[in-house]
Design a protein around this nucleic acid. Sequence first.
DNA 1: GTCTATATTCCGATAGAC
DNA 2: GTCTATCGGAATATAGAC
Lengths: 200, 200
Amino acid sequence: MSTQNPPDTRERLIRSTQELLWERGYVGTSPKAILERAGVGQGSMYHHFSGKSALALAAIRRTAEDLRRSAEECLGGPGTAYDRIAAYLRRERQVLRGCPIGRMTQDRDVVHSPELRQPLDELFGWLRGRIAEVLAEGRRRGELSAALDPAAGAAAVAAVVQGGYVLARAADDAAPFDAAVQGVLTLLAAQRTPAARTTG
Amino acid sequence: MSTQNPPDTRERLIRSTQELLWERGYVGTSPKAILERAGVGQGSMYHHFSGKSALALAAIRRTAEDLRRSAEECLGGPGTAYDRIAAYLRRERQVLRGCPIGRMTQDRDVVHSPELRQPLDELFGWLRGRIAEVLAEGRRRGELSAALDPAAGAAAVAAVVQGGYVLARAADDAAPFDAAVQGVLTLLAAQRTPAARTTG
DNA sequence: GTCTATATTCCGATAGAC
DNA sequence: GTCTATCGGAATATAGAC
């Protein structure tokens, strides 16, 4: 826990690293670039962190926490299960920048390090579980068909988001992301029981 | 077009690059590593290619061609529209290695280069179009509900595959990929008209 | 065509002054 | 705590022999 005053050196280092990891990935992010963006010298970084990987770990954990909070805002919101999934899928995103955590899965040094991979595993594990809860609740309430498997449906919803980023970046256009979201929502809407179709 | 005899130097360079781009991405792949894997000297590479990016372009194009052929084998196969989508989603994959083309979308140098991004755009553009064709055909034949939008459904199917890789790599486990595929197939199965439910 | 030797720059980390 | 100076090694490319 750091002091919550004006961003100190340690805090600036973490935030610079969060940005750079998002933009360039782990391999593509050099300590030098981090220091320049943070506006501090090399000595500061090695005073606060043992090296690049320790700083990356702090940055990845911070980003994962932020994403989790942001997802919970939608998934824990009001409305039917379908409404909450739709809110999550349609929430504002910088589609062409991709997912700051999802991108880490394409970085060899990250997935090969148990420490660095752990926050990724935890975030996506939590996300799939949380979406599955919402779907299961919808089923219990009679909003959604009993034929829907919450765990599988949740994995599909989470995958559509991550894959949507990939398709959008390949096209340099957010349209494929939006189409994928629309596609899975249409499929999910068909799982609603007649009684639940008053919204959406 | 190269000679199709025993793999010559140029061919070995391309294949080494295909492997390394898959394993390490563009930024993480050095000419030195390519040469060592191909078993040739530095001079050979700069004789056949102008540099790293030209060699990467040849490798990416080759990989995209291979993936396209492989996808067409499933999508152009026999059976109902649902069967063909299911065959594509369930075809054998090295899930934890990820998609060799999808991973390129997380590489800054690749998406920022119009030349290097083009094969990615073409492959995923073709894939979404091809899946949409299959869905549209299924709708015309009365196998699938008229409520299903082929383009959006196709984007969702393609996204589930790409996102499935991301979830699996984060978990270091293929299970989330399989769950996502199962999830979207269950949703798609619900779009089949009663007459088409003799298979699957 | 293919090789080795070399050039230049950047990487990630350490040393030590202030 | 923060800075600059420096290290050993790797990245990408060029030069030039064979």
